[in-house]
Design a protein around this nucleic acid. Structure first.
Lengths: 201, 201
DNA sequence: CGGCGTTTTGAGAGAGCTCAACATCGGTGG
DNA sequence: CCACCGATGTTGAGCTCTCTCAAAACGCCG
């Protein structure tokens, strides 16, 4: 979800880069939001600490994803943001963003549209996680992400990344893909998966 | 997430009720969006049909949830909406909504804020689904949804509903809650769960 | 060549799912 | 008031599937 689509130039001009070491905090619960962040590289996890002192991870965001959208509309962060690896981020000042939305209705609408799309994407991923079977989960993914031809998907990262996105261990995914390929359901060639025939119901 | 918060009166006035029989389509992929819907009762599933003719369910929406947010900003629906049971919906004309946002900046911002909150909620639920252990999933839920005192949660619906929200079978949830209560970790009294002590790591 | 991360395959165990039976509760009507 | 009924709540037993731990082949880069 590249944000270059909807971020007005006036805001993009005010963006600043920020680097975090692994384990460093971008912000803490209770801090006042001053910026909105896009992750360029690395991972940042959003988490809360419960009464017992245990960390509850809410989300792990990767490259291309944004965090703290909702905080744009609230006065404090309601969770911590901690780098899970060395990470670089782009920070967009909250004030500049809100000002831009106030002046530029198109920008505001584009931002809203982006959020609406995110909502639908997240719902789709949520539905996927309801599927227990690794094979059906892969099928669901292929059905949702198939390209224009409706039969092939190009993977962005490694298979391990793919496994994480599917919420499976990489071993389970390897086995599942191998099994589907053996059964003639899919074909794999370096980062691309093609649906060969309908899975037997 | 009651939408009464952000829907301006001018739009609410234009809302119309609509009833669907089980299996009836609310809209089909490719249709032009004319309305934005809130589900009052029943279930509506969003799905696509892949080349092989198999239905891929993207999401199942229940009472209180809204569908087709993103379609407000696009010219065609990109999935089907089909009633999974007898359902009643409230329809808000797309044109009225957009017009209201254009006139009333507060309404537009409120809508955006609602979407932003939804994004965060969905991310939280997504993270929860990454947790395999039923017990840890319950703990995560309690940690996230604890009330002001940080130790108690009041369930809205039945335990079966709770199980569905957690993505567990109701049997697994019964057993887990019983086990946690037996171990002195929580206390249950009709629809309310209280955290008694920190779970042993 | 040597090291590191990804990909792949193996074996075993645990945890939740499935099927099944039963208890409980609230509403409905005779 | 009681019998009936459906839905929720509860417990039992077995099974399947993924996770976990382990190890080896493969590819890439210094």
């Amino acid at each position: 979800m590249p944000n270059h689509d909807w971020l007005p130039a006036s805001v993009r001009a005010k963006a600043s880069e920020r680097k975090l070491k692994s384990g460093a905090a971008l912000f803490r619960q209770g801090d006042r939001p001053v910026s909105f962040y896009e992750i360029v590289t690395g991972r940042v996890r959003l988490s809360r600490v419960d009464r017992a002192g245990r960390e509850v991870v809410l989300y792990v965001a990767g490259p291309g994803e944004t965090i703290a959208e909702a905080s744009l509309f609230s006065t404090v962060y309601h969770c911590d943001a901690i780098a899970g690896s060395a990470a670089t981020l782009r920070a967009f000042p909250k004030a500049a963003l809100l000002a831009a939305f106030d002046k530029d209705r198109k920008a505001a609408q584009a931002f809203t549209a982006t959020l609406a799309r995110q909502v639908m994407n997240l719902r789709t991923r949520l539905e996927q996680r309801n599927i227990r079977s690794a094979r059906d989960r892969v099928r669901h993914y292929l059905g949702v992400h198939a390209g224009a031809d409706g039969r092939s998907v190009t993977l962005r990262g490694t298979l391990k990344d793919f496994a994480a996105e599917l919420g499976l261990t990489h071993e389970a995914l390897y086995r599942t893909l191998a099994g589907m390929a053996r059964g003639g359901e899919i074909r794999r060639d370096r980062g691309k998966i093609t649906l060969l025939r309908a899975p037997k119901v």
